[in-house]
Amino acid sequence: MAQTFQSLSMLQVMAWGVLFFGGIYLGFGALNWLITRHLLPALGIGRVLDPRPVGPEQLRRELLQSGGSVLIFGLGMVFPWGLLQLGWARLAVNPGGWQIAVEILVLAVWNDIHFWINHRLLHTRWLRRFHGPHHRSVVSTPFSTYSFHPVEALMLGNVILPPMLVHDFSFWALAAVPLFSLFFNNVGHSNYDFFPRVSYSHWFAASRRHHLHHAAHGGNYGFQFTFMDRLFGTRLPADAADVQLDAFRKKQKVAHEASA
């Protein structure tokens, strides 16, 4: 597989990249929507985090912005391919299963570090305007995952380039990065608490933490893991969005009583 990837032409790499990122974005998004909007509520498992409605205009905007990100990520596959062509990076030859597993674990930790650094930068006054389009989704959806300004997509899309320069990773470990990254991203934007009984600091409470980031517009810059927010003191308290959500519920209650 590694040899096949390296033997592709530049246009083939970009075409396959767009198809790959578009396919996983739509596939994960549709599956998550089905599970969190229909299956789990019907089974009485978990709960919606933010009850405020999401309109069709938001979904159209998310899909349009995500289309741009898919193009950037897909066309951007030419950069790791280019590192290999130039000899600046190499792929591992005949890697064993344990090597691939360890590499995936290392890349998962790096992915969270890379995400935290770039996400924190995007909340500075110099780059905030490029993160604003993503935060228009105050109530996140599975289709918010790639809903980025092009500058943000470029910042987040270079995650595998630095590791490739310092180690000969296996093809399968590198290919796993966009898969687990989008999976974590999709879960975080699902607006659904899959495991209400686990603590707020648990890895399985990632959707709870990222929901608060969208509702409170700051803090919780990490994603699946919590070590970066703990290290730099940027973790939001579990009740950070209570004021906004309580105000919405009171408004709903008043409207319901008025119409009764």
Rank of each mutant, 00 (worst) to 15 (best):
W110Y: 13
H134K: 05
E152A: 07
A101N: 02
V102D: 04
W126S: 09
G97K: 05
H119N: 04
P162N: 11
M155Q: 14
W88T: 08
V78E: 02
N158K: 01
G157T: 12
I104N: 05
V139L: 03
E57W: 14
R120P: 00
F130M: 05
A92R: 15
E62M: 01
F171W: 10
M155R: 12
L174K: 13
V159Q: 13
Q99Y: 04
W116H: 04
W126D: 02
H135E: 13
Q65W: 14
A92G: 07
Q85L: 08
V159N: 09
H123S: 10
F143V: 04
A173C: 09
A176C: 08
V151T: 13
S137N: 11
V166D: 09
A101F: 15
N158F: 08
I104T: 07
W110C: 01
T145I: 06
P142M: 03
G76I: 08
V106S: 02
H131A: 00
R90A: 14
L83P: 12
S69V: 06
P142F: 01
E103I: 06
L84V: 00
A92S: 15
L86Y: 06
V151H: 07
N158W: 06
T145A: 15
L154V: 07
P133S: 06
R128P: 05
P142Y: 02
G96F: 02
H134T: 06
M155E: 03
I160H: 01
T124N: 07
G67R: 09
V139G: 06
L64Q: 13
D168Y: 02
L107A: 06
G67D: 06
R128T: 03
G96Q: 07
H114R: 04
S69Q: 08
Q85N: 05
H119C: 02
N118M: 10
D168Q: 14
G82A: 11
L64N: 14
V159E: 08
L84E: 04
F148N: 12
L105D: 01
W116N: 03
I160K: 05
G87F: 00
I160P: 02
L156Q: 15
L59N: 07
P95Y: 01
V106H: 00
F171L: 03
H167D: 00
M77G: 11
W172L: 14
H119M: 01
H119K: 04
F73N: 09
S140W: 00
I72W: 13
L84C: 11
P56S: 10
L91D: 05
G132P: 00
G87P: 05
E62T: 05
P142D: 03
D168C: 00
W126G: 01
M164K: 08
S147F: 09
S69H: 07
N118Y: 06
L86A: 15
P162C: 11
S144E: 08
L154W: 14
L127H: 11
F143T: 05
S69I: 04
L75H: 00
F169W: 15
P163D: 10
F143G: 05
L107W: 04
L156R: 13
G132E: 15
R61S: 13
N111D: 14
T141M: 03
R60G: 00
S144Y: 08
L91W: 07
V139Q: 10
I100E: 06
I117C: 10
D168E: 15
P56W: 11
G87A: 03
G74D: 12
S144Q: 10
V138N: 05
F148K: 05
A89F: 10
P162E: 12
L64W: 14
L64V: 12
A101K: 07
G157D: 11
